[in-house]
Amino acid sequence: MNNHEIDFKLYGDDMQFVEVELDPNETVVAEAGALMMMEDGIVMETIFGDGSKSGGAGIMGKLMGAGKRIITGESLFMTTFTNQGTGKRHVSFASPYPGKIIPMDLSMLGGKIICQKDAFLAAAKGVSIGVEFQRKLGTGFFGGEGFIMQKLEGDGMAFVHAGGTLHRKNLQKGEVLRVDTGCLVAMTPDVDYNIEMVSGVKTALFGGEGLFFATLRGPGSVWIQSMPFSRLASRVFAAAPQNPAGKSQGEGSIAGGLFDLLGGK
């Protein structure tokens, strides 16, 4: 294997974290802010780019790796965790919002996975986190996840997180699956991905599902999430009390409402 070979264990159900077991001198790479805890003997270091050698050696290779991350909206830097002790050590990473962590063995998935740009959590050292440009302009303009998606390449383990409940569906050749654009988490590169407009004016305007959906055509595997973060955030925002700036209702909404009813300011 070209990538570091790491062992792992998942904990939890809807608020999961992944514990990675590192042998001496093994390294795992993670997004900034993903760390939950680590044992003594593990050294943390911030690196420029994704730490892989896919961009070539030297400063130009590092700049290319970092440039890929800028295009996908991620930070220039990533964090590596290396076991510099004499025995096995453990480091854990947590999802940024409720959902599932998907362990993906890239060696069993053709060496490449395409995922939405904010889905990557961590991976074995050597996995390349790059850019996948969608070929069709309709996908870019209306795909929900943008024209650019991430691609994870290598032969090691990678961990991707999704919101809500996760479902993997294996599509046969020619089989078509239509999903909400935000619900697509990842897919194998042989899946044909396109965007279609919802038919019917009334359905598009009043159906509550948006104007476009993703059309996935097999063969290949796709991973679907039941609760995209954008949907969760919009519901929370819609339910949040809209108070004028500087106005406080205290801890209880009932008391605050009574305060307003009595003419309080």
Rank of each mutant, 00 (worst) to 15 (best):
E19A: 13
T139H: 11
T139P: 03
G126C: 10
P189Y: 03
G99R: 03
A57L: 14
L258T: 07
G85T: 05
L109Y: 07
W223S: 01
S230K: 14
I113H: 04
A119Y: 13
N2Q: 14
D23H: 02
G256N: 02
R235I: 00
L205D: 05
A57W: 14
K136T: 10
L258G: 03
G33S: 01
G154V: 06
T82F: 07
V201D: 15
V179G: 01
A57M: 15
K53L: 15
M104Q: 07
G144E: 06
E145I: 09
S107E: 09
S75E: 15
G144Y: 10
M36T: 09
L76T: 08
L137V: 15
G110E: 05
R217Q: 10
Q134D: 11
Q150F: 05
T181E: 08
M15R: 08
I224K: 03
G12H: 06
G111T: 07
G182T: 05
I6P: 10
M108V: 01
I70L: 15
A57H: 12
S234Q: 09
S230D: 04
I70E: 04
P228G: 02
R168Q: 11
E26F: 09
G163T: 05
G264K: 08
T80M: 08
L22K: 12
F159P: 05
R231W: 11
A255E: 15
D105T: 01
V160A: 02
K88Y: 11
S75K: 02
S107L: 10
G163R: 04
G85C: 01
S128K: 00
F206E: 04
F237S: 15
A32Q: 06
T215A: 13
L109T: 10
A94F: 01
M36K: 14
S230H: 06
E175Y: 11
S226F: 04
L22T: 00
S128C: 02
G218A: 00
G144T: 04
G200E: 00
N83T: 00
A34V: 04
A255H: 08
N243P: 01
A162M: 08
E153I: 14
I6D: 09
Q116K: 11
M227D: 11
E175D: 08
L216N: 09
K125I: 11
E5W: 13
K100T: 01
E132G: 03
G51Q: 09
M1F: 15
A122F: 09
G146C: 07
A158N: 02
T188Y: 08
K100I: 06
K247C: 09
A162T: 10
F93Q: 07
F141P: 03
M37F: 12
P244H: 10
G55I: 12
I47L: 15
K136E: 15
G252V: 04
A245L: 14
E209D: 11
L137K: 08
K151F: 03
P24C: 11
G220V: 05
M44K: 07
L152I: 00
G12P: 05
V201S: 03
E74T: 02
P103F: 10
G164K: 03
A57E: 12
G87R: 12
E74D: 13
F229E: 14
P98Y: 00
D105A: 13
E21M: 08
S221M: 12
F159V: 01
Q249M: 14
K169Q: 13
E19T: 10
M1E: 15
K112R: 14
A255K: 13
L63A: 15
P244M: 03
V20G: 06
G263H: 13
S248N: 07
L261C: 12
D23Q: 12
D50F: 00
S107A: 13
G246E: 11
T80Q: 13
M104R: 03
